[in-house]
Design a protein around this nucleic acid. Structure first.
Length: 370
DNA sequence: GAGTTTGAAACT
DNA sequence: CAGTTTCAAACTC
C-alpha cells in the first residue's frame, strides 16, 4: 500500500486493488502463500486485522481480492510480521489454528439460527458444539447439543422427534442422510425402525450381563477421514437419556481393513470425553509415528433428568498415504453397561420402557475444506 | 449495485 | 468486562 490516503474514492477509480499491484507484479510467488481460497474486499482494515479473511486465515492477499489500501502482502511482509507480533502480545494464540480456534470457541449466532453463512461454524463446515452460544441452532452440520443454548430442551426433543419419525427428511449431516451410512443390523436392535440415519434409538440394557454390543458400520468416505487435517476431524457422539443414574460406555473402538492390513486404529485415549466438550486443543494429538495404545474404558456418568453428555472420537493423525479407500467401512462397537464398575453396588435393573431408552445421536463433522 | 442485516472484531 | 462502535461479509431488493 502506497499511502493511507484519506480520499479512498480517488483510489477506487483507477487502481483500487493495491495488493494486486504488489503481489502480481512484484511478488509473483505470493500466490503460493495464499491458497487462493481467500478473497477479501477490505476497505478500511488495510487487511491487517482479523476483519480481513485473508489475514485471519494467515494468508497474504492475492489477485482474487479486491481490497483497498492493502498491507497484507509480501511487499509489506516485515510490517505485517510486526503487526502480528503486536497482536500476539495481546493474544499469544491468535494465529494458532485460527479456524479450529473459531470452531472451538464456537459461534454466537442469535438471529440466523446458524443456517446462514454468518455462522462461523457453518462456514467451516462443522456443527455447533456446547461451546457455541447460538440461539435456536439449526446448523445443518450438527446442532448445538446444549439445550440451554437452544431454547430449553427443544434441541433434544427435535432429535427424538426426528428419530421417531423414520424416514424423516431432516438430517444433521447431509452425507449421513443421503447414504444411510450408519447401518445397524436388525438383530442388534430388534427393530430397524429404530434407526434413522444418524439418530439411533437403542434400548438401554437392564443389567450388566445383558449389556449388548451395538455395531455400527460407518463408511469412511462419509465420515471425516482419519488423516492429518489441521482442523481435526472429531466425530462427536452425543447421547441423552431421561432419568439416567449411572452408565458406562466401554469398548468403543474402530476397526477397519487398512491398505490390505487388518489393523486397529486406536488413539490414546481412543476417544475424548468431556461433559462440556472441552477445548479441542486439549485433545492429545497423536502422531502417526506413535503406536496406538489399547483402548481404555471411559466413564460416562450422568445424573438427573434430561442429562446430556457428549464425547468426541478423535481420529489419529495419519499421513495422506494412509487414507482408506473411499467406501471402506469402519466398524464401531459400542458397549453399554448400565452401571459404573467399581463404584458401589449396581443399581437395580431398570424396566425396559421408553423412558429408559438410550438415545444416541451421531454427528459426523466433516471439517475438510469444501 | 445499493441498501440492510448480521455477527465478529475492535474499541471504550 | 460489559456495552458500544466498527468492520466486512452475507443477504435482500
Amino acid at each position: 500500500m502506497a499511502s493511507s490516503s484519506g480520499n479512498m474514492n480517488e483510489e477506487e477509480g483507477a487502481s483500487d486493488n493495491n495488493h494486486g499491484d504488489l503481489n502480481k507484479e512484484n511478488n509473483p510467488s505470493s500466490s503460493s502463500i495464499n491458497d487462493g481460497n481467500c478473497r477479501c474486499t477490505c476497505k478500511k482494515s488495510k487487511c491487517v486485522k482479523f476483519y480481513c479473511r485473508c489475514f485471519n486465515s494467515g494468508n497474504f492477499c492475492n489477485d482474487s481480492c479486491s481490497c483497498k489500501n492493502c498491507l497484507n502482502n509480501e511487499e509489506n511482509k516485515d510490517a505485517v510480521e510486526e503487526i502480528k507480533k503486536n497482536i500476539q502480545l495481546r493474544d499469544p494464540e491468535a494465529f494458532e489454528s485460527k479456524n479450529l480456534a473459531r470452531t472451538r470457541n464456537g459461534c454466537h449466532c442469535r438471529k440466523s439460527e446458524c443456517t446462514l453463512q454468518y455462522c462461523v461454524c457453518k462456514r467451516n463446515g462443522v456443527g455447533c458444539t456446547l461451546n457455541c452460544l447460538c440461539e435456536g441452532c439449526k446448523n445443518e452440520y450438527g446442532i448445538n447439543p446444549n439445550p440451554n443454548h437452544n431454547n430449553g430442551s427443544k434441541n433434544v426433543e427435535t432429535i427424538m422427534d426426528n428419530e421417531s419419525s423414520s424416514g424423516s427428511s431432516q438430517s444433521y449431516h447431509p452425507a449421513v442422510h443421503a447414504n444411510s451410512s450408519i447401518q445397524l443390523p436388525d438383530d442388534e436392535l430388534g427393530n430397524s425402525n429404530n434407526v434413522n440415519n444418524n439418530n439411533i434409538h437403542m434400548p438401554m440394557p437392564t443389567n450388566p450381563v445383558d449389556s449388548p454390543y451395538y455395531n455400527f458400520l460407518v463408511h469412511q468416505n462419509h465420515v471425516a477421514a482419519p488423516y492429518y487435517d489441521p482442523l481435526l476431524t472429531p466425530v462427536q457422539i452425543q447421547s441423552s437419556r431421561n432419568n439416567i443414574t449411572e452408565m458406562q460406555i466401554t469398548d468403543l473402538f474402530e476397526d477397519t481393513n487398512w491398505q490390505g492390513q487388518s489393523s486397529f486404529l486406536r488413539t490414546n485415549p481412543p476417544f475424548y470425553y468431556d461433559n462440556n466438550v472441552a477445548e479441542l486443543s486439549s485433545i492429545p494429538r497423536i502422531q502417526s509415528s506413535q503406536q496406538y495404545q489399547p483402548i481404555q474404558s471411559h466413564g460416562f456418568h450422568q445424573q438427573g433428568e434430561e442429562s446430556f453428555g457428549a464425547m468426541n472420537l478423535q481420529y489419529p493423525f495419519l499421513s495422506s498415504s494412509q487414507q482408506p479407500n473411499n467406501g471402506e467401512a469402519t466398524n464401531m462397537q459400542l458397549h453399554l453397561h448400565p452401571h459404573l464398575h467399581g463404584h458401589g453396588p449396581s443399581p437395580p435393573p431398570t424396566p425396559d420402557n421408553e423412558e429408559n431408552h438410550h438415545h444416541m445421536m451421531f454427528l459426523w463433522q466433516n471439517n475438510r475444506p469444501q
